[in-house]
């Protein structure tokens, strides 16, 4: 397969729409075909060759690897509808990264703006710094949040993370802002550090795992302490597939809610 290096030719100081770059999944991997992929920069049509220097090499893997070097917060729609192979970004990205992503891997070594993984269907996204608002939530103009796949954020996340989420897994190792899991329908969100009191508002079903203490009001009712074996399963999956280590299983206090919405969502709060 191929290793494709896309290195930015000149500084990008306005919105760059990379939605069509995902067609790299499906096209023949030749320099000619890649250079002609259409992009939009400063609201004008352009081609990959206008923005990037392309280096194409063979690799010894059974999947293609695409590396983007020199990105910043103007790089929008990276990995939009991504279907297979690995995409690695060496710096920050803009909004709408991994929106409607189907499969494969997206690794972002910097931070991401809004709507990362919105309406995502599958695959794996790892953001090594922070993410702004609407992580894994419903994409603009739609009502369904993430419906599959895994998102790992090493840093912190803004508001409305996992809003309207339907399936999949989001792991946030840092803090999370207001209205996390708003109107969540199913899926799993795991938060390691602080969270706002508005977490899980109007939650119908789904699971929130909280690894540090905090308040979430009387909308959730305490429902006993259990050995949360599912977390063992999750930990093994993360370690074997993504080399991510989750904490050892501990006892968790289980809450059900949001009572105000007759919800049966569950919050697991690490005991002690």
């Amino acid at each position: 397969m191929y290793k494709i290096l896309l290195k930015v030719k000149k500084p990008i100081d306005a919105e760059l729409n990379l939605m069509n770059l995902s067609s790299i999944n499906l096209i023949e991997k030749t320099e000619k075909k890649i250079t002609n992929i259409p992009l939009i920069y400063k609201n004008k049509k352009c081609k990959v060759k206008d923005i990037f220097t392309i280096i194409l090499k063979k690799n010894n893997l059974d999947y293609d690897e695409v590396f983007i070097s020199g990105s910043n917060k103007f790089f929008n729609y990276i990995g939009y509808g991504w279907e297979k192979d690995h995409l690695r970004i060496d710096s920050d990205v803009g909004s709408f990264a991994a929106v409607k992503m189907r499969s494969g891997k997206l690794i972002i070594n910097g931070s991401a703006e809004d709507f990362l993984g919105s309406s995502m269907l599958g695959g794996y996204v790892h953001v090594k710094k922070n993410v702004q608002n609407f992580l894994g939530s419903a994409f603009v103009g739609t009502r369904s949040g993430m419906t599959g796949g895994t998102i790992l954020v090493t840093g912190s996340v803004g508001s409305f993370a996992a809003a309207h989420m339907r399936r999949g897994l989001i792991i946030i190792r840092g803090n999370v802002g207001k209205y996390c899991a708003f109107q969540m329908i199913s899926g799993t969100v795991m938060i390691f550090k602080s969270f706002a009191e508005s977490i899980g508002i109007s939650m119908k079903r789904g699971t929130i795992i909280l690894m540090s203490n905090g308040k979430f009001g009387k909308r959730f009712e305490k429902s006993g302490v259990i050995n949360f074996i599912f977390l063992d399963l999750l930990a093994t999956h993360m370690k074997s597939n993504f080399s991510v280590t989750l904490p050892d299983k501990k006892k968790f206090i289980r809450y059900f809610g949001d009572k105000n919405a007759n919800g049966l969502g569950e919050i697991f709060l690490k005991k002690g």
Binding site: G148, R167, G168, L169, T188, R205, T207, I226, N227, F228, I229, F230, L233, L234, H237, N241, E266
Partner: peptide, 22 residues
């Protein structure tokens, strides 16, 4: 009971008297 998808597989969490049967 609650279903959870981990990777490509679906698991069922069935409540039992010692916690959950996965």
């Amino acid at each position: 009971q609650i279903s959870k998808k981990v990777g490509d597989k679906r698991y069922w969490r069935i409540p039992v008297m010692d916690g959950e049967f996965i």
